[in-house]
Design a protein around this nucleic acid. Sequence first.
DNA 1: CTATCACCCACATTCCACAG
DNA 2: CTGTGGAATGTGGGTGATAG
Length: 372
Amino acid sequence: MRAVTRVMSRIALLQIDSVNVVRRAHYLPLFSRLGPYDVEFLHRAAGTAPRRFFEYWGHEASYLRVDLQPALRFRMAEAADVAWGSMRRVWAEQPDLVSSVLDEVATRGPLTAREIEHDAPRTKEHWGWNWSHVKIALEWLFYSGQVSAARRNSSFERVYDLPGRVLPRSVIDTPTPSPAEAHRTLVRAAAKAHGVGTGQCLRDYFRLKPKPTADAIAELVEAGELLPVAVEGWKRPAYLWHAASLPRRADACALLSPFDSLIFERGRTERLFDYRFRLEIYVPAPKRVYGYYVYSFLLGERIVARVDLKGDRHLGALLVQGAWAEPAAPTETPQRLWAQLESLAGWLGLGDVAVAPRGDLGPALKALADST
DNA sequence: CTATCACCCACATTCCACAG
DNA sequence: CTGTGGAATGTGGGTGATAG
């Protein structure tokens, strides 16, 4: 068994080969480790022929490389068993609605949910979201692969269309792999992205089920693609991607969105970075520890700070509503963070960065704000 | 014309109990 | 210990209609 230090694991992790996206991209960017140039590239790549990315359920709602589409068809085929309850119900109880919505997309698409005229009632289930039955039908069709997302509109709503008009011909023509082969493909992709990870990490990347993932891992170990390793301080066995490179150091400098693949598996984040992160957008305001939408600041190979950000278009400013240093923060943290905040504001088309001096980094950032 | 408002959409996490 | 299922949690923002 080869031993891997935690520092090596952190560095290996920084090589990302797929991009997880995307909510609320208009006021806060979730392509957080990509610069403006890369975001342009991603939009172009997702929106023009031949398309390089498509939207589907990966880890969660994600842009995925189109060549992974065949490996996700098993999930589409399982939709009747694994999709959320409201979707399964609309499929079982209102088949006519589902087929008329599909017809509408086929004849008039691409379309958003809003553009399909209807007086179907709305529901209020689960998360307090308030979907119309037409929207649920569309999401059912999306989950089961009968429609795809052509793009998002300016309100970030999904624009649905038939897969044949969204995906490249070569992808449509690719035969469907067996579920076992599909799992190997997805575990490979996860392993490349992680460098080093536990079975848990590899499974969570595409939200796979335990049994088929364990089988895929065993087969990839057998084939020499994954190497069993022990990571310093980790209780569970880990796997090293055979081709992972281990640079001597990492010079990252980036604001990570709460949904960034670097930190979306919270247990892994804690084991690698000694950094506890929890999403607080669904926490009632008085119970929040840090804030509604908190970015983590990656510097070098450590997470050294977190900031609660809000883009205020009306004021034309990026609001820093709080800033906190982590124990690993070096002295240059405020300056490096400030530069990233200015860059982010520029990318969002916001002229200013306004700092409220909340949190232990607040005063230092405020001083930098006042001096510019 | 601007301000306001209603409407619609956004689909994740975390804790906990319990079964195997 | 691992996995699973249930329960509980929110507000931001774009758009287009309407009021003033």
